[in-house]
Design a protein around this nucleic acid. Sequence first.
DNA 1: ATAGTTATATTCACATTGAATATAACTATA
DNA 2: TATAGTTATATTCAATGTGAATATAACTAT
Lengths: 221, 221
Amino acid sequence: MHRHSVDSLIFGCRNERLEVCLIQHADGPAEGQWGIPGDFLYDNESLEDAAVRTLRTRTGIDDIYLDQLHTFSALDRYPGERVITTAYYSLVRPQDYEAVAGAHELDAQWFSVKELPELMYDHGSIIQYGIQHLRHKIRHAPIGFNLLPDKFTLLELQKLYEAILDIELNKPNFRRKMLRMDLLVDCQEKQTGGAHRAAQLYRFDHATYQKLQDQGFVFEL
Amino acid sequence: MHRHSVDSLIFGCRNERLEVCLIQHADGPAEGQWGIPGDFLYDNESLEDAAVRTLRTRTGIDDIYLDQLHTFSALDRYPGERVITTAYYSLVRPQDYEAVAGAHELDAQWFSVKELPELMYDHGSIIQYGIQHLRHKIRHAPIGFNLLPDKFTLLELQKLYEAILDIELNKPNFRRKMLRMDLLVDCQEKQTGGAHRAAQLYRFDHATYQKLQDQGFVFEL
DNA sequence: ATAGTTATATTCACATTGAATATAACTATA
DNA sequence: TATAGTTATATTCAATGTGAATATAACTAT
């Protein structure tokens, strides 16, 4: 027999870096090691329920983007007993950034995906799997907006893509492509602060995306 | 507590139709109903091992394309007890077509995805989820070749895409796009039979794909 | 030999892309 | 108040890719 757990890969983007939230176990078989937050599945909840629950318990955050990633089942992935885990990944907006790392007694901290500590069990593989998945997904579905404030500038959006894909993009071409998709709504509001020309603020238009999608439109970065 | 099963969605393409292989349960809680083949997970195997095992046991086929799809865990998805299932999907070449539906005592049969019988448990949802996944995947990775003989004509390849995506494609444009990717090798051999000009046979070049992929090439239909 | 069928090549208008350049607008500070 | 520094935004153009149509080649059955 075995037990089943849920682990949630929590992504955020800050300072033009893609980051993941890790927790350090204070005791147990992986004492002192870092890993992605998770818990064992309860008898009366689905895997998705469990993922939502652990996110809420550990971070106080509700209502963020969440999707199933993969189920990992190697016989030796967990020490001592057999544990199969289903990994989810979630996307956190900047305004929720601090809540994620601060709301729990466990030591939680954001790490750049380029500078990860040593990880427990197979969590290193899970994170790498998740990064690859995110890189693919962000180019084929408009989920990147879940990592930005509701209102954002085109440059912020571009920097988000650059951070996740780890590439540089041409500014005018990125603007042109993004705006032509008609998924962004002009907020009629300018960015404040900054010693330069104020940029237009936009927000992602879910309703229009839904409509275009029904007409066969496919998002493609 | 719960048990964990593995279910395999087996796709094939014949007569320009996308098909799935279903089995009819002779007894048990779903007697007489159709479903995708599966089995409970053994203690000493990974989920992928179990998927390979059930495929081999039920069809005698080894070495076919296999990939994890999704893990389904709704509390009421299985009658009487809680069973979480991880669904895999596999792609079968025409030469293995008969072996799949004939090698087992259970009643196995191919069905067009457009004319499915009533299905047990949540297998209807699993199949729909799998079709959507396949449609997306086939456009972004060269996996369609796993549904064709080793040697095939460009029209056969086109008809495969048309069957899976359920759309019509322009012939010259499809040829041009496919050939320009440099993933096909001319077999220096012509199709036989047919009251018309014989078509050139091609095969998919795994090695070249690997090389191109390392250089950052992304397959895109 | 001819009709029927599919293979294969070519054309062209059009849209998209990559890359570069130009101008506008804002702030800090000299 | 002028200017330097910075980012926003617009425009250009060549190159490339796409959708759609047409033309020619090659094969078989009759």
